[in-house]
Design a protein around this nucleic acid. Structure first.
Length: 457
RNA sequence: GUGGUUGUAGCUCAGUUGGUUAGAGCGCUUGAUUGUGGUUCAAGAGGUCGCCGGUUCGAACCCGGUCUUCCACCCCA
């Protein structure tokens, strides 16, 4: 057993069926991105460490896969640093490159680097794997795909409106009904922190608030107290926990709560614009819900924050997220470039569709028909037909060996090929083919035009 | 990073207080069936019990370490 080869923790192999299903999701997302005017780019799977390090917080830095330098990398290490055995200080000396951790930061780097060639607003999509040195668990892998669409160079809230539509379009096409797109605004979170006098504890405050649906009101309050948020502040926060009703009602309540905060009010206005227009335009199957407890990616979001959760019955966490960041390219020296984007987690969407049995049967990239091999002369006859079928786009193949028929049938059966075609001496004489439906067992003899027409339908 | 969990045939799993030769179902191969698969029947192949070490007359079973699986927390897609 131990001698068997294996793959690293948190990685996966994909069999033909799985790849077909993944491609199906991939294509739906790609087509939708394209339909909304986004254009594809790709970036390298690894970047210079300084491009990535420090962009995702302390936790993120730990999760970045570092690539060891080539050659005698230890010889260049500073003696003193080496003797101290401090990993954090040695790492930059032995590793100058790191695997891509997400698609947003490389995109920011791309925009800054290519700013003179880019026409703004720039709408790009990108669907590539990313790597994180996380401990794997349900729906969490060390190598997984993200599908991102972002716009940079426009502060228009119509972008946010379109992203909500885009989420709705993709999940509707995938047959994932009733998805809730949750939306919040970083400005509201800052505004609340301001009103309760906890600006300096914004991160602690939002991280705790984010857990509301998991640990409940009391749990959140307990965590906030532990982080040093005063009892008076918690008192002021009370209306937040009982925020109810439709989006409009929530916004009205928030207005009251945020009375003193200009920033908070601005956030409310932004949300009002988005929800109002979505209401006017309508959504196919998804719904848009304001959720003030939503607090993701605070490291760079400055305006709207999106999150799409998997349906509650599958227990998967978020399958997509995004938001607006006013200053993403600032860290690379290009200030005042506002951007907004969303991301789909391909692997999690896959797990959700699989669990809910939502993959259409037609995603298979399997052959439509297998020709039985009766020997050399018959194989030539079959190959002529196969060549013609392929030229009109019908997937067909010949069983490579002239073995016993039972074996060839069994092969078609196991590969789930819908039809087998018998072309032996009998058929050759009549210039015909015997087509067998592997599901029903029915057989019928026909000439080539009939065969082609049948397989094409 | 913290806590737990798992590992026995290709797959899913049994395996007694530590005791001869480690089992089942499914799958696989062959045959019944020389132009018919999925059903049935018969026969057969297949395992260094994750790995390393320890305790013991004796270990799949007990102990330690290690890797792996899955799960929760943290964080995230």
């Amino acid at each position: 057993m131990s001698k068997k080869p294996s793959i690293p923790k948190g990685t996966r192999d994909f069999n033909p069926e799985e790849v077909s299903k993944r491609n199906y999701i991939f294509n739906v997302i790609k087509e939708t991105f394209s339909l909304y005017g986004f254009q594809p780019i790709e970036t390298p799977s690894f970047e210079n460490s300084e491009t990535l390090m420090g962009k995702y917080g302390e936790e993120g830095d730990r999760l970045i896969f570092k690539i060891l330098n080539s050659g005698d990398y230890l010889s260049k290490v500073d003696e003193k640093v080496y003797s101290e055995k401090d990993s954090n200080r040695i790492t930059p000396q032995i590793s100058e490159k790191a695997l891509r951790y997400d698609l947003t930061v490389p995109f920011a780097r791309y925009v800054v680097q290519h700013q003179n060639e880019i026409t703004f607003p720039f709408k790009r999509y990108q669907m590539q794997p990313v790597w994180r040195a996380d401990r794997p668990q349900k729906g969490r892998f060390r190598e997984f795909y993200q599908c991102d669409a972002d716009v940079v160079g426009s502060t228009s809230l119509w972008q946010e409106v379109e992203f909500v539509q885009l989420y709705d379009a993709v999940f509707s096409k995938l047959g994932l009904k009733g998805v809730a797109i949750k939306i919040n605004n970083r400005k509201i979170l800052s505004g609340i922190a301001e009103t309760i006098g906890a600006e300096d504890k914004l991160i602690d405050f939002t991280v705790a608030l984010d857990k509301l649906d998991k640990i409940g009101e009391e749990g959140v309050k307990k965590e906030m107290r532990e982080k040093g948020i005063s009892e008076a502040a918690l008192q002021k926060l009370q209306p937040l926990f009982s925020l109810k009703g439709c989006n409009d009602e929530k916004l009205t309540s928030l207005n009251g709560l945020l009375g003193g905060s200009q920033l908070g009010m601005a956030g409310v206005e932004e949300l009002r614009f988005i929800t109002r227009n979505i209401k006017t335009l309508g959504l196919q199957t998804a719904s848009l819900e304001i959720d003030v407890t939503l607090a993701r990616g605070l490291n760079y979001y400055t305006g709207a924050i999106f999150e799409v959760s998997a349906p509650s019955e599958v227990n998967m966490g978020s399958i997509g997220g995004g938001g607006r960041y006013d200053d993403l390219t600032g860290i690379f020296g290009l200030p005042d470039m506002s951007g907004v984007g969303i991301s789909f987690g391909l692997d999690r969407v896959y797990l959700v569709l699989e669990e809910l049995n939502l993959f259409p049967e037609t995603v298979s990239e399997n052959s439509k028909a297998l020709f039985i091999n009766f020997g050399e002369k018959e194989a030539v006859y079959a190959m002529k037909a196969i060549t013609n079928l392929r030229s009109v786009g019908i997937k067909a193949e010949l069983y490579p060996d002239a073995t016993k028929m039972g074996k060839q049938m069994g092969y078609a059966d196991k590969r789930n090929i819908a039809f087998t075609i018998l072309a032996g001496e009998k058929e050759m004489e009549a210039q015909s083919y015997t087509l067998k439906n592997m599901k029903s067992g029915e057989q019928s003899q026909m000439d080539f035009p009939e065969l082609e027409a049948f397989l094409k339908s």
